[in-house]
Amino acid sequence: MSSDVAVPLLSVERLTMRFGGLAAIDDLSLDVPPGKITGVIGPNGAGKTTFFNCLTGFYKPTVGSVRLNHPERGVLRLEDLPSHQVAHTAQVVRTFQNIRLFPKMTVLENLIVAQHNVLQKASQFSLAGILGLPSYRRAEAQAVAKAVDWLTRLGLIDKADTAAGDLPYGTQRRIEIARALCVDPLLLCLDEPAAGLNPRESGELNELLLRLVADEGLTILLIEHDMSVVMNVSNHICVLNYGRKIAEGTPKQMQNDPNVIKAYLGEEEADELLYGEKGGESTGVTP
């Protein structure tokens, strides 16, 4: 099957989110193809995080629909699901711009909590758990094994027993991704995963994201300001400004799109950069 004609995993149609008179998202339509990384970029306040909040059930969009083509459960309307169902039923899992770990719990516990629904079912209203039945013990061992697997792959295994809140920022970012992966997502929504990372760390993040898509067949939706990450890993980029989609295409196309450059640099500077002294040769928006 050719990926260009594949059914999109997620289709956002005419999504609008208003807060009072302000339209944080204005008539946004977007298709997210499966098995690819789709980047969402835009200046601060462009509505990127609001877009994520609409996808993951934290906000109810004013107008529009978000459809997920679930391979087993058919088409799911995400805008009608409460936030925990978005993660549980639709398997759309997100991370947060301001990291939201369970700071006093250990890294391992964070990853086990992510498998709550599976374990809770295995514990049969905690009865099997209290009695310590083998069925529950097996489920717990599997959950630990899965957590250990992700921790190993993300290079976090030696931090497993440390309280998550005690770890450095970059590590916490990775833990949040590992925790999201433990939910078995179909679609992973990452909200600025590279924020606060140093160049080496964001290089590692690039590798990780590419590996997740290649090895696990994950689909990733990525909000990011760090152009070295977005431009290098995204198959497809959507640019937002003032809640509207102003451009969409491959990273190359976006780097040369005059609208995009204007959105980032403002009219005058963009003109200077695009049509300046040297003429013709664009430097793109890489900072």
Partner: peptide, 13 residues
């Protein structure tokens, strides 16, 4: 610790 994170992980808070 964090209710919102729980929801995002699919937990019925």
């Amino acid at each position: 610790e964090d209710e919102i994170a729980c929801k995002a992980l699919g937990m019925n808070v």
